[in-house]
């Protein structure tokens, strides 16, 4: 199994690594780059907790090969806030109690940020639809939905 050299940007930093073709983007992020905020919880696209932004769009990183991201730009949860200053959505998650155990929180934040960037005023239905690809076992989802809607309202 020949390793391939790939170059990509992650959270604004350019990286070049050699990676075997059977390694996923999730593996690249967690095991090679040691960014542990992106979580592994099913490896078959069901839970969505490994979701990251690939060229600005959310993807489940367990279903993308690392070799596929050559030349791409990736953002993980560690790349959302700048210099320790939380984003409006991160603050809203805290205010609305949108996290408990926290294991799914990075993925919900990634999708939430993507949604609001793309559509500053999503309807509740659009928020729910965007979140349907992710699982949370603690919060019952409502506080997460409210947190995202509160930021979109604040943007009006």
């Amino acid at each position: 199994m020949e390793k391939k050299k790939i170059t990509f940007k992650i959270n604004g930093v350019e990286k070049t690594v050699e990676v075997a073709p059977n390694k996923t983007l999730l593996w690249l992020i967690r095991e090679e780059l040691k960014l542990k905020g992106t979580k592994k919880a099913c490896e078959r696209g069901d839970c969505g907790l490994c979701t990251v932004l690939l060229n600005g769009e959310p993807v489940k990183s367990c279903l993308v090969l690392a070799v596929e991201v050559d030349g791409s730009e990736i953002v993980t949860v560690e790349g959302l806030s700048r210099d320790g200053e939380l984003t409006e959505l991160q603050k809203a998650f805290i205010e609305h109690g949108a996290l408990q155990c926290g294991f799914c929180t990075p993925a919900f934040l990634i999708v939430g940020h993507w949604l609001i960037n793309r559509n500053p005023r999503p309807s509740k239905e659009e928020v729910v639809e965007a979140l349907n690809g992710l699982l949370c076992r603690c919060t019952g989802y409502r506080p997460i939905i409210e947190a995202i809607l509160s930021v979109s309202k604040a943007k009006k």
């Binding site: 696209g45 969505g48 979701t51 959310p58 993807v59 489940k60 999708v111 690809g133």
Partner: peptide
Amino acid sequence: IGDVILKNR
């Protein structure tokens, strides 16, 4: 089909 995230791929 699938969900919003999967539809990106």
